[in-house]
Simulated assay, not measured.
Amino acid sequence: MTFSRIGGWAAIGFAVLLAGTNLILAPSGLPLIGDPANEAADYFGAHAGLIGISGTLAVAAWLLAVLFGAAVVAVVRSSERTRGEAWAVVGLAGLVLQNATFTVFTATRLALTATDGTATEALWALNEALFAFNGTYLATAMLGLSLAGLRSGLIRPIHTTLGLVAGALQLLGALLLPLVFNDPGAVDLIGLAGWMLWVVWIFWYGIVLIRTRAPSTEHLLAPNPAAA
């Protein structure tokens, strides 16, 4: 299996894990940004097992996200080098930063399941802040990988537009949430719309990578006439 296909399946796996985890957590009453700390404490204390499972799935998702980003870099790097560009590297950096942020985000969720109540308010505030600012890194990933794919002929303009719109929504949410932290209201919907488009974008990108043919290596095996 070529590396591009590995990255493609990783992207699809990431999207499935991401959507599946949230479909499991959402009906359980998962608290959102702006909800009181005592409600968050009650939820995480009562759903420690469910949060533990979601944390395990997150570990797999982080690995898959990096494989996806690396595959895009591998496919487009020759084209980008010719133009003196590095949009794919920008996108991969966004994915790595997203992983780092969500590692701490997930760790605070796990900590909330075991807190004795004294640190609940601080942990919940940190969890909310991490989630709010994570949109910045998702926007960076979609900006870089969308432009890299478009300018290298890997993805179509409509796919790029989807990524840029999703990234813009994520970035807008990250910019606005600190201003309405305790009562996000419609700002939460902006982030949610961007997140849903992000899942579709990365799933679609995975299909593209799976269908991408590996560059021919026959010229590397052919005899060199000049050496004869």
Rank of each mutant, 00 (worst) to 15 (best):
Y205K: 10
H159V: 02
A227G: 09
A65S: 15
G29N: 11
F102K: 03
P178A: 06
A148C: 06
G163S: 01
W201E: 12
F44E: 01
L220K: 12
H219N: 11
A86F: 14
G149I: 04
P225M: 00
Y205N: 15
G153S: 11
S4K: 12
I207R: 13
F14E: 13
W62K: 05
L67S: 13
A37S: 15
F102I: 02
L30A: 10
R81E: 03
L23E: 05
R83I: 07
W201K: 13
R151C: 00
P184S: 06
N99V: 15
L97R: 00
E128D: 15
S216M: 00
W9K: 10
G149F: 03
N127T: 08
L92F: 00
M196I: 10
F131M: 06
V66N: 05
F131H: 10
I6C: 03
A166D: 00
G45W: 00
L143G: 03
G20W: 06
P36R: 11
V66P: 09
W87A: 05
E128I: 02
L17V: 13
F44V: 01
V59E: 07
G45Q: 12
V75L: 04
L176C: 10
L57R: 14
V90N: 01
L64H: 09
G144S: 01
R83N: 14
V200E: 02
L172C: 14
I53Y: 08
A26W: 14
L162D: 10
N127W: 08
L169Y: 00
V187Y: 03
A60I: 07
N134M: 14
L154N: 06
A41M: 08
A141N: 03
F105A: 09
V165R: 04
R109W: 15
L220V: 06
T101Y: 06
L197R: 00
E218R: 15
L57Q: 13
G153Y: 00
T115A: 01
S152Y: 02
L171V: 03
A40N: 11
S78E: 15
I158C: 13
L150M: 03
G149Y: 02
N38F: 13
L50W: 05
L164M: 04
P225I: 03
E121M: 09
L197T: 05
T21H: 12
S54A: 15
Q98M: 06
A214W: 11
L23F: 04
G163K: 02
I202Y: 08
V90A: 03
G69I: 01
G91H: 00
R156A: 09
A11V: 04
E121W: 13
L18C: 08
T103A: 11
R211Q: 13
L154V: 09
P31M: 07
T101R: 11
G206K: 03
